[in-house]
Amino acid sequence: MATVKFKYKGEEKEVDISKIKKVWRVGKMISFTWDEGGGKTGRGAVSEKDAPKELLQMLEKQ
């Protein structure tokens, strides 16, 4: 499965696309949330040019 790689608060992170729940556009950035388990929700953002095609497809479906 595809993953999204991004930096959050200076830390490199990687999230499996299948865990992503919500995707939206903020200017030229793609923001998203995912389920971290245990009732926690993670947040992240990646530039439109660095976003994997699967993430962009999720954005178009909404």
Rank of each mutant, 00 (worst) to 15 (best):
60 E>R: 02
58 M>Q: 07
42 G>E: 15
36 E>D: 13
15 V>M: 08
5 K>E: 02
39 G>K: 05
31 S>W: 07
59 L>I: 05
24 W>N: 10
34 W>L: 02
17 I>T: 09
3 T>D: 01
47 S>K: 13
56 L>Q: 12
54 E>A: 12
44 G>D: 01
46 V>C: 05
20 I>V: 11
44 G>F: 14
10 G>H: 06
46 V>D: 00
43 R>P: 14
57 Q>C: 13
25 R>E: 06
58 M>A: 08
5 K>C: 04
22 K>M: 09
60 E>D: 13
6 F>T: 03
43 R>C: 12
1 M>P: 06
25 R>L: 11
51 A>K: 01
9 K>M: 11
59 L>Y: 08
14 E>C: 06
40 K>P: 13
1 M>E: 15
41 T>P: 07
28 K>N: 11
21 K>N: 15
47 S>Y: 08
9 K>T: 01
22 K>G: 08
40 K>W: 07
32 F>D: 00
20 I>R: 00
36 E>S: 05
51 A>C: 14
11 E>D: 03
62 Q>E: 12
54 E>Y: 06
48 E>Q: 05
23 V>W: 02
31 S>V: 10
9 K>S: 10
7 K>Y: 11
49 K>G: 14
31 S>E: 11
43 R>N: 15
47 S>W: 03
57 Q>Y: 10
38 G>W: 11
51 A>Y: 01
51 A>Q: 04
30 I>V: 12
27 G>S: 05
33 T>C: 11
24 W>L: 04
18 S>H: 13
27 G>I: 02
49 K>Y: 13
11 E>M: 09
53 K>I: 11
19 K>E: 15
29 M>L: 11
4 V>K: 00
7 K>C: 15
49 K>A: 06
60 E>P: 07
60 E>S: 07
45 A>I: 11
21 K>V: 14
19 K>Q: 07
30 I>A: 02
52 P>D: 04
27 G>Q: 13
37 G>F: 15
32 F>W: 02
25 R>K: 10
56 L>A: 05
17 I>C: 11
53 K>Y: 08
44 G>I: 13
4 V>D: 00
55 L>F: 05
42 G>Q: 14
16 D>P: 12
50 D>P: 02
26 V>N: 13
51 A>G: 04
60 E>G: 02
28 K>C: 15
59 L>P: 01
30 I>L: 06
56 L>K: 07
60 E>Q: 03
6 F>I: 04
25 R>Y: 08
54 E>L: 06
54 E>P: 13
26 V>Y: 09
33 T>R: 14
61 K>V: 13
18 S>A: 13
54 E>H: 05
46 V>E: 01
18 S>I: 10
31 S>H: 09
16 D>K: 12
32 F>A: 13
18 S>T: 05
25 R>S: 12
2 A>T: 11
62 Q>L: 09
49 K>E: 06
21 K>F: 14
22 K>F: 07
18 S>D: 13
52 P>C: 09
52 P>Q: 04
6 F>R: 00
53 K>S: 07
60 E>H: 04
9 K>F: 13
55 L>C: 02
2 A>C: 12
54 E>D: 06
45 A>N: 15
31 S>A: 03
51 A>P: 04
30 I>T: 02
57 Q>V: 06
36 E>A: 06
34 W>Y: 09
13 K>Y: 09
49 K>R: 08
16 D>H: 14
24 W>I: 07
28 K>F: 06
43 R>G: 11
3 T>E: 02
34 W>T: 01
7 K>H: 15
8 Y>P: 01
20 I>T: 02
11 E>W: 06
8 Y>Q: 06
27 G>T: 11
46 V>K: 02
16 D>T: 09
33 T>E: 15
13 K>R: 11
1 M>W: 14
34 W>S: 01
16 D>W: 08
13 K>M: 11
52 P>G: 10
62 Q>T: 10
46 V>R: 02
48 E>N: 08
45 A>R: 10
38 G>E: 14
27 G>M: 03
12 E>P: 07
19 K>C: 11
41 T>G: 14
32 F>R: 00
51 A>N: 03
14 E>L: 05
18 S>K: 09
59 L>V: 08
17 I>D: 01
55 L>H: 00
52 P>K: 02
30 I>G: 00
21 K>L: 09
34 W>M: 02
10 G>E: 08
19 K>M: 12
10 G>K: 03
57 Q>K: 10
31 S>M: 05
19 K>A: 14
29 M>A: 14
2 A>G: 15
61 K>Q: 08
53 K>N: 13
32 F>I: 08
29 M>I: 04
1 M>R: 10
50 D>Q: 15
19 K>L: 07
48 E>W: 03
28 K>V: 08
36 E>G: 08
50 D>G: 04
5 K>M: 03
55 L>P: 00
48 E>L: 07
39 G>N: 08
4 V>L: 04
12 E>G: 04
30 I>Q: 00
30 I>M: 04
50 D>R: 10
57 Q>E: 04
40 K>M: 10
22 K>N: 14
61 K>T: 12
45 A>W: 05
1 M>F: 12
38 G>S: 10
15 V>L: 03
9 K>E: 13
32 F>G: 02
21 K>C: 12
39 G>R: 05
22 K>P: 01
42 G>N: 13
24 W>D: 12
32 F>H: 00
51 A>R: 01
44 G>V: 12
59 L>S: 05
